[in-house]
Design a protein around this nucleic acid. Structure first.
Lengths: 326, 326
DNA sequence: TTATTTGATAGATAGTATGTATCAAAAGAA
DNA sequence: TTCTTTTGATACATACTATCTATCAAATAA
């Protein structure tokens, strides 16, 4: 058993292709193949299903088990290195973050806080659904997730709440809403909606609330992009529901306004999740430590706000073309 | 980084000697030394403190961290093999059990249950204090512990209660106790005691109870061996406190009797503890599964009793010389 | 059919891990 | 002190083996 063989195995499982896996591991395909074969011989089980033409056809059930352990072992090797880097005071490498798409506005603030403390680390952000995030965490393909915490089965993970966000209604800045800054869900349901696709968690959550107040809004337009929905509001006189922190997005306010949704007031807890287990993975610990410290001093909410404003100024200057209508 | 290097590191940390570590790893001392040096170079930290004469002087603080990860990684490699063996239906190797000395009478029953189900596994039993057991579990030098569960910081471990035992008083079968089968703690305190050493957990627990009922017994004899205490009762007319399951010990009843201690009736929960974490270690899981199944069917208490009786007959036949006095 | 893709196989080579022999430093014994 | 023993590092030769290039076999695609 060699660590190298585990890396080969993980690469093949992810690439689903011996040749590409070999490239990724910076070895030739015969080297990788023989490494895999050696591992299979030593463990006494077939790891990969091969077609009669030797083509990759997936993993055997034993192979899945082996891959699970292999991922953990390799992750612990990386963890060891990261911990030593932390001791030396210069953590380096990548922090792999899985975030829900709607976290986009707050991520730059979080990441710049992290990079400020750990200049040697680069962030690798992937926008994923909650299930993919959990899968990534348990496969050690991610270090932390940034997501809504008010969900069911987060039991196998550690969590740290960061902030709580309220749902708002983004509306055109027309006479219809002049002088208002609140609106009820029932009232909103009558408006022409642009919404996220029904498969997305954020949409499902909103649908539940409408159901509770006894209404079913009919979206005129559906999209997987919150940004696009906001453009729809700006240019098509539709309305859409967005998390409160999107208020800080630059350049998009022109011609639109935020109304606070009430009856009920809905707020969701947003926070970090990361894999459980001893010893804790250093990359995740490093981010969690920073967040915990900021929460303890009470600076977190302020910093999130401040940074967002700074960005807004910068981007406003860079993208005046977005400030169109009115 | 090679798994082999981790094994070298662990061996040196345990043997505290490069030469002995090399023997244990079945390599020559220069091979082991170069492996360690290579690891230190690659990780960029010194792992071992060497005297100027290169003598082993312990681990550096970084070395301790590295050893922690290394133990985990190697344990996971073993875990992978064990899981594959389990899948094949013939788990093999050693199950390393850390038990408190007073568990001695029940261990044979537990182990024979385990070996019956997994014939390829040999048991490696070590009698340890609770702290050593916990250390062994967290260092992956043990698979499971068998101990009292009513203690404080078992938080980092999983637990499974197996049975609950009552404390009894072993007394000479003299006229003084004729016709009795119960005695109060306060009354017992006046008797001439043989007791375990004050450093042992069982003794401390007993002392607490005496303190609660406002008495302080004065042991005439102290020993670390429960067996020896029982001989003292048999041959010196002293009394001693033993767990109820010692009633099943063969050959020692002659000339002694058990009295149930009351006011208060004290019972302690005995069970398995094992290291937390995903994925679960197969050796521990295998034993825990068996125990859980037996608990669910209700057979556990009965089997523990039955097996003990079977053993008693066997041993009685083999060791009639122990049935002396009366 | 022929061409392409995919992974296994063969054989040569370079790199390296290991063992033997030895050395240097310190501790222990006389 | 001096001599011996212990302990781990070093030097060097050797055997091993991981990797590479080149090629093949089977299956799919054109």
């Amino acid at each position: 058993m060699f660590l190298r063989q585990f890396k080969y195995l993980i690469a093949v499982a992810e690439e689903k292709h011996f040749g590409r896996a070999a490239d990724r591991c910076c070895v030739t395909q015969p080297s990788l193949s023989s490494g895999i074969k050696q591992l299979e011989l030593e463990l006494g089980v077939a790891i990969f299903l091969r077609g009669r033409g030797q083509r990759f056809l997936g993993l055997t059930s034993e192979g899945e088990r082996v891959a699970k352990w292999a991922r953990r072992i390799i992750a612990h090797c990386d963890g060891m290195k990261d911990e030593l880097d932390t001791l030396k005071g210069d953590l380096k490498g990548y922090i792999r973050i899985g975030a829900m798409p709607s976290m986009s506005p707050v991520l730059p603030s979080l990441i710049s806080l992290f990079v400020e403390r750990h200049p040697g680390v680069k962030a690798d952000v992937r926008f994923l659904g909650i299930e993919e995030t959990k899968l990534g965490l348990s496969k050690f393909a991610l270090d932390v997730g940034l997501t809504y915490l008010n969900q069911e089965d987060l039991g196998r993970f550690n969590t740290l709440p960061i902030f709580s966000e309220r749902l708002n209604l983004l509306v055109p800045d027309s006479d219809e809403f002049a002088g208002r800054d609140e609106i009820t869900w029932r009232e909103a349901a009558e408006l022409p909606f642009a919404m996220l696709r029904p498969t997305m968690r954020e949409r499902q959550f909103v649908d539940q609330i409408f159901e509770k107040v006894g209404t079913v809004p009919e979206p005129r337009i559906e999209s997987e992009s919150i940004l696009h929905l906001m453009f729809q509001v700006q240019f098509s006189q539709l309305v859409t529901i967005i998390p409160g922190h999107f208020a800080k997005m630059p350049g998009l306010h022109s011609g639109t306004r935020m109304l606070k949704l009430k009856e009920p007031v809905v707020s969701q807890e947003v926070g970090l999740i990361w894999a459980d287990g001893e010893p804790a993975m250093p990359m995740a610990s490093a981010l969690v430590d920073i967040m915990k410290r900021l929460k303890a001093t009470g600076d977190l909410a302020q910093i999130l706000g401040d940074l967002a404003i700074i960005e807004q100024n910068q981007v406003d200057a860079a993208q005046p073309k977005l400030s169109i209508a009115r």
